[in-house]
């Protein structure tokens, strides 16, 4: 290389290529993303975090939680499950219908102990024949899309997380390390406010052998006044304060927990299909309108 121009040209070409690839194109593709519709319920997703939870995101960032906790669920595959809900009035004809499509299912266990999954197929289209055959003889089936992978088996999420899940976060913290469990869905996994507060104050009191440091800096230890505070932590054993004292969460602790409880990314989206768990049954009791 003889001249400095060549050096700068080389550097410019290489760097502008990757800049275009990993800065410009993502901005064009994802930078203007807005709420999308979930499938099939057509709810708007995601919703922006409100008040306390939004402040909690700042506490999460400030404490550097991201260095031990990821906020993204991985997925290794996906399966389509055919769930037989009801074999209909004439069970044997249903079995015959099933056997016509899937000969290997021609055994009495197939239609006992319902509802149960009777087959896994390659994709939705592959389930059509079975669905048609069963419904024709009066049976009922459901076809479910179930993402698979170790994170999902651990209960960290229902599906993989995608760009859409993060559009309203300012500091997006997907994390790259799991010294602690993933938190992408902690709001639905561990939705108990008191559990979360106790766990922050003394992790070992909630999870035996936990290696998480205690975040006592988020709590205030104070002398019990005339009346004990209503929001004092209910602690037992080693982590309990000495008699006459109580442990009260500070605003930061409340914000952080509000944020943790708001973490949830399992809405079914086009780019990450999943069959949502059955919605809570519609209210059955006639709520007296008095």
């Amino acid at each position: 290389m003889k001249s400095s121009n060549t050096i700068f040209l080389a550097a410019f070409i290489a760097l502008s290529a990757s800049w275009a690839g990993f800065v410009l194109v993502p901005q064009i593709q994802l930078g203007r993303a807005d709420q999308a519709k979930t499938i099939p319920a057509e709810d708007k997703y995601p919703l922006a975090r409100a008040g306390l939870a939004a402040q909690g995101a700042e506490v999460y960032r400030s404490l550097g939680c991201v260095y031990c906790h990821s906020q993204q669920v991985g997925q290794q595959g996906v399966k389509v499950e055919v769930l037989l809900l009801d074999a209909g009035t004439n069970a044997s004809s249903t079995l015959a219908a099933i056997a016509k499509v899937h000969p290997e299912l021609n055994k009495p266990e197939t239609i006992t102990g319902l509802p149960k999954e009777i087959a896994y197929v390659a994709d939705i289209a592959a389930s059509d024949a079975l669905v048609k055959a069963v419904t024709a003889v009066g049976g009922k089936v459901e076809v479910n899309v179930i993402p698979t992978g170790s994170d999902i088996s651990r209960g960290w999420g229902k599906r993989r997380t995608v760009a859409q899940d993060y559009i309203f976060d300012h500091v997006v913290q997907p994390g790259t390390r799991r010294a602690g469990p993933d938190l992408a869905n902690v709001g639905s996994r561990l939705a108990d406010l008191n559990w979360q507060l106790n766990h922050l104050y003394a992790p070992k009191s909630m999870v035996k052998d936990s290696t998480m440091p205690a975040y006592r800096i988020l709590f205030e230890k104070r002398k019990i006044g005339k009346v004990a505070s209503a929001d004092a932590l209910k602690l037992t054993g080693d982590s309990a304060p000495p008699p006459g004292f109580e442990i009260v969460p500070t605003d930061k602790a409340r914000e952080l927990v509000a944020y943790l409880l708001s973490l949830r990314s399992d809405a079914p989206l086009f780019e990450s299909p999943v069959t949502p768990p059955p919605a809570a049954a519609p209210a059955t009791n006639t709520v007296a309108a008095k």
Binding site: Q75, G77, V78, D123, I124, A125, V145, R160, E271, P273
Partner: peptide, 15 residues
């Protein structure tokens, strides 16, 4: 998004 490899692939799993 991985593990899907194309739009057609994602489409296969749409309810």
């Amino acid at each position: 998004f991985s593990p899907y490899v194309s739009v057609a692939d994602v489409q296969r799993f749409q309810p």
